[in-house]
Design a protein around this nucleic acid. Structure first.
Length: 420
RNA sequence: GGAGAGAUGGCUGAGCGGUUGAAAGCACCGGUCUUGAAAACCGGCAACGGGGCAACUCGUUCGUGAGUUCGAAUCUCACUCUCUCCGCCA
């Protein structure tokens, strides 16, 4: 949510920022609504002040046993006006909120300007592509050949975009999640949470999925939605809170399933388990003081990277351009992992600084010298577990179709060298 | 699912129709004292919004939404949530 004061003072600049994010100029409309609302409010408030003072007077007259009927008539006259103005103010205020709640965050100055993923820029890369003396297979060829990855049965249960992992692959998924959580809690300074997977509208509004992107989500009953990411419950833990400075920075993590309708992705990545309606992810969230959020983004990125480095898998980091960033982000790094079977890089993590955008929606502040200041929020995958499993299969595959166990995961596999 | 109790500021907790934006305590901030710290003492301290260059001033807010009233934290209704007991259950 945007600071209306910023728009009042910098309407042209604001429109330019919105244009970078693919929005039409809107500051005129916003300022017009804002103006009418404030003018209405001013008149309304002076009438309310009149009413209050007359009422107070009535109380005084009555306590002195004097006649108050002429004062009471006065208030009666004002009443109608008050009701009309209040109605008008509510309408204008709601229109304003509707517009503001659907506008994306302003991009940080260091973000490249562009319209789609072709304009993203490479930030850095790590490791090297592995060399094979055979044609590396895709993860789904490997998984299906091993008889441990099954799309048909999953489809029988739940339809398309679901997968079923069996035996050693199911165990691998569990090992990856444990490894990530152990790393983030023991070495990277995050506190682990076990969270609800169903949330209310207000939580999704806070992180920015609602009201605009409801079609990307699954609903559960009348009042709940399935979380598309643990970012939602993790970040909204501090919704409507005024934190103490000594509670910051707050670094939290959770391993949860994520549910996405993939409404706009029909026909995209239909083979394999790259894009599923349900997947698991270890999420990282930081709540920090404003002046620290840029450093925190780098720190979070490094925490996510540390997983792939320990797994010794090649990746590159892209800085997303203004047109490719998510709604709430002011700056986003994507970690793209190398997948030899697909001969391409694929996103495995997305780390974003949302600065005060979500904090304004959630009304989350912290106390600094008797002032209340909006916190900054950050979120990042650390990492997507399913895609990490894919990356391990494709990067650690052997000619016979078996999979080597990465060194750091061996302890979860009785020190076995290979999956089978 | 049945029965009851409750929701007030960052926290605890008084208030149950008219200087109550709200006692008191804790926390926090400033000061005195101290070599320093603690303790003690003194002072300050809700949020959000409107108007004003400013001093300041006005409005809204006591779970949420409606209603009664000249006037609501206080009365009425609906909803949400929390707690206790019983039943059921992983």
């Amino acid at each position: 949510m945007h600071n209306i004061n910023f728009i009042r003072e910098n309407p042209t600049e604001f429109d330019n920022y919105m244009k970078q994010r693919g929005e039409h100029p809107i500051s005129n409309k916003i300022l017009e609504l804002d103006k009418v609302k404030r003018e209405t409010q001013t008149v309304l408030q002076s009438l309310l002040a009149d009413r209050n003072s007359i009422s107070k007077n009535i109380g005084k007259l009555k306590s002195e046993n004097k006649d108050a009927s002429s004062e009471m008539n006065k208030v009666d006259e004002i009443k109608n006006k008050i009701n009309n103005l209040k109605e008008l103010e509510t309408i204008k205020d709601e229109e304003l909120k509707t517009i503001l709640s659907r506008l994306p965050n302003i991009a940080d100055k260091t973000v490249p300007i562009g319209s789609n993923e072709a304009d993203n820029t490479k930030y850095r890369e790590w490791g090297e592509k592995p060399k094979f003396d055979f044609n590396p297979k895709t993860h789904f060829e490997l998984g299906e050949n091993l008889g441990l990855m099954n799309f048909e049965t999953a489809s029988k249960l739940s339809g398309s975009r679901f997968v079923l992992l069996k035996n050693q692959l199911s165990k691998l998924e569990r090992a990856i999640a444990n490894f990530m959580l152990d790393k983030h809690t023991n070495e990277n300074g995050y506190i682990e949470y076990n969270l609800p997977f169903l949330v209310k509208d207000s939580a999704l509004f806070g992180t920015g999925q609602l009201p605009k992107f409801g079609e990307d989500l699954f609903t559960a009953g009348e009042d709940h939605w399935l979380i598309p990411t643990a970012e939602v419950p993790l970040t909204n833990m501090v919704r409507e809170e005024i934190l103490n400075q000594n509670q910051l920075p707050m670094r939290v993590t959770s391993y949860t399933p994520c549910f996405r309708s993939e409404a706009g992705a029909a026909g995209k990545d239909t083979r394999g388990m790259l894009r599923q309606h349900q997947f698991t992810k270890v999420e990282l969230v930081s709540i920090v003081e404003p002046q620290h959020s840029q450093d925190e983004l780098e720190r979070m990125l490094e925490s996510a990277e540390s997983i792939l480095q320990d797994l010794n898998i090649h990746y590159r980091i892209m800085t997303l351009c203004t047109g490719d960033m998510g709604f709430s982000a002011s700056k986003t790094y994507d970690i793209e992992v190398w997948l030899p079977g697909e001969n391409t890089y694929r996103e495995i993590s997305s780390c974003s600084n949302c600065n005060d955008f979500q904090a304004r929606r959630m009304n989350t502040r912290y106390k600094l010298e008797n002032k209340n200041i909006f916190v900054h929020t950050l979120n990042g995958s650390g990492l997507a577990v399913g895609r990490t499993l894919i990356a391990i299969l494709e990067n650690y595959q052997m000619k016979d179709g078996n999979i080597k166990i990465p060194e750091v995961l061996k302890k979860y596999f009785n020190n076995s060298d290979t999956l089978i």
